Amino acid sequence: MPASPASCTPSTDPSCGNPEPVNTSIYDTPEHELLRDQVARFLAREVEPHAAAWEEQGFVPREMLRRMGAAGLLGLMFEPEYGGGGADALMNLVFAEALSQSTFGGFIITVLVHTDMAGPHLHHAGSAAQKDRYLRQVTAGEKICAVAITEPGAGSDVAGIRTNAKRHGDHWVLNGTKMFITNGVHADLYFVAAKTGPGKREVSMFIVEKGTPGFSVGRALKKTGWLSSDTAELVFDNVRIPAGHLLGEEGKGFYSVMKNFQTERIALAAMAVGHCQQALKLTLDYVRQRQAFGGPLWDQQAIRQRLSMLDAKTRAARTFMYHCAWRVTQGHDIVQDVSMLKALTGELVNEVLQSCQQFHGGMGYIRETAVERLWRDARVLAIGGGATEVMLEEVAKRY
Rank of each mutant, 00 (worst) to 15 (best):
V349N: 02
R327V: 06
F359W: 09
A316M: 14
S339F: 04
Q336P: 03
A370G: 06
S308A: 13
E372R: 05
Y322G: 02
E372A: 07
C324Q: 04
C356W: 00
R367S: 13
I383Y: 10
A382V: 04
K313H: 11
R379Y: 13
G361K: 04
A343K: 02
C324T: 09
L344G: 01
I383R: 07
Q358D: 14
C324N: 11
G384F: 08
D333M: 12
R318C: 09
V371Q: 00
D337T: 09
A316L: 12
A316T: 15
V338A: 05
G346D: 06
V335D: 10
Q358Y: 11
V349Y: 02
Q354T: 15
G346H: 04
Q357M: 11
T369L: 03
M309N: 12
F320N: 06
G346E: 04
G346K: 03
R373C: 02
T329E: 14
E368V: 10
T345E: 07
V371W: 01
Y322W: 15
R315I: 09
R367H: 10
G362T: 01
T345C: 15
A312H: 14
V352C: 06
H323P: 01
L353C: 14
G364M: 00
T329S: 14
D311V: 03
L374G: 00
A370Y: 02
S308C: 09
R315Q: 15
V380W: 01
M321W: 05
K342T: 09
R379T: 08
C324L: 09
G331A: 13
W375L: 05
Y365L: 08
M321Y: 08
M340F: 13
L353Y: 01
E372F: 12
G384P: 00
K313I: 03
A382D: 10
V371Y: 00
V352L: 07
T314N: 04
I366V: 10
V338Y: 02
R315E: 11
M363A: 09
S308Q: 11
L353E: 04
R379A: 14
A370P: 03
S355R: 05
K313S: 13
R327C: 15
R318G: 07
R376S: 05
I334C: 10
R315A: 11
M363L: 15
